[in-house]
Nucleic acid binder design. Structure first.
Length: 258
DNA sequence: ATGGTAGAGTGTCTA
């Protein structure tokens, strides 16, 4: 089974790219973030004609998550148990979507951005991760994949220029500790072992031709429970999807399971 | 500190 995660930055504006991506890589399950579409706005017809089911939650502006699957889509859950709200509860909910696809529990996650250190959204991000960790502990014994945009660069090698991030979110000790806690609990970054070398980035800002200059971040991850990690046979980052006009600012990440 | 680009929708907000 081949699963993928992609912060698509609007599903409607990129539906042609999504459909082409699914076919190009023969994807079974695709978790999306920043869909920026309400459920009633989903472009379903092309996906259904390709044999996929879709589950989604979100608003039409700033977030939203979805799972597209041709391997089954059962026990769909919007939000994880204990997920904290922030402001608009609908927007808060649209950051996590769980479904069982072909026996694998997939969670499409859009971790809060945090905005700035000291901002209420930064505290919310850390609280959100603490509560996600507690929920993830209860899923650890199954075949579970925590996939999505974590908005954390766990190590300095995941950042094109760490000096530029001296006062930024995504690299603070608290955020990195929150990410590391999942690894301490037994979840495994199943992608890094299959993507050796320096080209680990999954996100390049639209500004200043960051992709063309390869000045990116690695913030999109697939964390597998121990049993899922043991099934992983390969993984790659689809950098080509970030190229050209009309690309998302994130590249898809693909994982193969035995 | 500011600005650069992109997407949601016509006001700015978010990333």
């Amino acid at each position: 089974m081949r699963i993928a995660t992609w912060n698509v930055n609007s599903l409607r504006s990129r539906i042609d790219r999504v459909e082409a991506f699914l076919q190009r890589h023969d994807i079974d399950v695709l978790a999306l973030q920043e869909t920026k579409a309400r459920e009633d706005q989903l472009p379903l017809m092309g996906l259904q004609s390709l044999g996929y089911e879709v589950a989604a939650a979100g608003t039409n502006q700033w977030n939203g998550v979805a799972i597209i699957s041709r391997a089954g889509l059962d026990d769909v859950e919007v939000g994880f148990p204990g997920q904290p709200g922030f402001g608009d509860p609908v927007a808060a909910e649209a950051r996590a979507l769980g479904a069982t696809c072909g026996g694998v529990r997939v969670w499409s996650l859009y971790v809060p951005n945090g905005r700035k250190i000291g901002d209420p959204h930064y505290a919310y991000k850390l609280d959100w991760l603490t509560r996600l960790r507690a929920a993830a502990l209860t899923w650890r014994d199954g075949d579970t994949a925590l996939v999505g945009d974590w908005n954390i660069a766990p190590t300095d090698e995941d950042v094109f220029d760490i000096a530029q991030f001296a006062t930024s979110t995504h690299v603070t000790p608290a955020e990195r500790a929150a990410f590391q806690a999942f690894l301490d609990d037994g979840y495994v970054d199943v992608v890094r072992p299959h993507t050796p070398g320096p080209d680990v980035y999954t996100y390049w800002d639209y500004y200043r031709q960051r992709f063309e200059r390869n000045r990116g971040l690695r913030i999109d991850f697939v964390l597998g429970s121990p049993s899922l990690a043991a099934r992983t046979t390969g993984a790659f980052i689809d950098r080509e999807e970030r190229a050209g006009t009309g690309a998302s600012d994130h590249a898809p990440v693909v994982v193969d399971l035995a």
